[in-house]
Design a protein around this nucleic acid. Structure first.
Lengths: 162, 162
DNA sequence: GTCAGTGCAAACTTTTTGCAACTAC
DNA sequence: GTAGTTGCAAAAAGTTTGCACTGAC
C-alpha cells in the first residue's frame, strides 16, 4: 500500500467519524472495516463483491444487511457514489477521485472510465433553476472496441455467405 | 390526440416493423400495442406502470414477461431508452424527443427533465477513443426546490430550539 | 443500563426462465 | 406445419425488514 492510499484512508475515516458524530450514529468497528475495504477497491463494485472481499481479504465477517445499511451512510457522507448499471447497484469510492464519466458497452456490459476536460468545464458552467446539485453522473452507451470489431467480423462473414 | 403524436406513432411503427423484419422477429399485435402505449406516455414509466396502462387504457391484455421481452426489442431498435433510477428500471420513448438530462432529488426521488444548449454542444464535441457511442444519459443528483426549502425550515427550527 | 446496530432468516420486489398453448409466417 | 411468441407460474436475483442478541455510549 502506498503512502497516498493510506493518507486518503485516514482522511475518509476522519470525515466518516465526523459524519457519524453529527448524525448521532455509533462508531462501530464494522463501519470502519467496510469503509477501509471500499477504499481498497479500484473502480466499481456491487454489494456481493464487497461481501466476498470483506470475508476473504479483510477477514472481517459482516452480514449483507450491515453492508446495505453502512453504504447508505457512506453515500450520505458523500464518501461513496451509487450507480445503477446492468440491473444491480454498483458503488465506487468518491473522495479524492478525479471526475470521470462512464462508457458502458450495451453488448457486453463492460464499463470504461474516461476523462474529458471540455466536458468538466461545460458541466461546471451549467446553471440550474430550482435545483441544488451535489454531483452528477454521465453514462455514454455504445459499443466497446472489442464488441465493435466482433460485430464487423460477423457482418463480413454473413455477407460472404450470401 | 394531435396530429404530431399520431404521425410519430406511425413513424415509429414503421421503424419497428423494419427492425423486426431485419432481425427475423414476428410482427405480433402485442408488440405493436406495447409500442403504441409507450408512445402515448409522456416522461418515464416502469414495467408495472406500463402493465397497468395496457390493461386499463389500451384494453390489451399482455403479461409482464411479454412486456420485458418487447422492451428489449424496442431498446435495441433505439425506440426506447432504459434508465435505472431509485432501484427499478425506468423507460421512456426516445424517437423525436429533444435531448434532455435528468435532475434527480436524492431526498424525495423526484425526477425533473431539463434542457441545456451548452451541454449539448460540449457533448457533441466529445471525442471517444476505442468506443462507438450510441446515446448518453446525464443524471444530476441534488435537492429539488421543495426538499431544499423543507430542509432549510427544519434547520431554522432546530437552531431556534437550541 | 440503554438503545442503536448487528446477524440471520424470512419477506418482498423486480426480473428472468421453463413450459404448454397459440399463432405469424 | 413449424418455430417464434405468449401467458402463466415458478424461480432467481437483489434488497429490505423483523427479531433477538450484542456492544458503543
Amino acid at each position: 500500500m502506498d503512502n497516498t492510499t493510506s493518507d486518503i484512508k485516514e482522511t475518509v475515516k476522519q470525515i466518516f467519524t465526523e459524519y457519524l458524530r453529527v448524525n448521532s450514529h455509533r462508531k462501530t468497528p464494522e463501519r470502519y472495516a467496510i469503509l477501509d475495504t471500499i477504499y481498497s477497491i479500484e473502480g466499481h463494485f456491487d454489494v456481493d463483491e464487497l461481501y466476498v472481499r470483506m470475508n476473504d481479504q479483510a477477514k472481517f465477517r459482516v452480514s449483507r444487511a450491515t453492508l446495505y445499511n453502512t453504504i447508505i451512510l457512506l453515500v450520505n457522507a458523500k464518501l461513496v457514489i451509487k450507480h445503477q448499471f446492468n440491473g444491480s447497484s454498483q458503488y465506487e469510492k468518491s473522495y479524492n477521485r478525479a471526475k470521470h464519466h462512464h462508457q458502458i458497452c450495451v453488448q457486453c456490459g463492460s464499463i470504461i472510465e474516461s476523462y474529458n476536460e471540455e466536458l468538466q468545464e461545460a458541466m461546471a458552467k451549467i446553471k440550474l433553476k430550482n435545483f441544488v446539485p451535489s454531483h452528477y453522473c454521465l453514462y455514454i452507451y455504445g459499443l466497446c472496441a472489442k464488441c465493435d470489431r466482433k460485430n464487423k467480423r460477423k457482418k463480413i462473414t454473413k455477407i460472404k455467405k450470401e
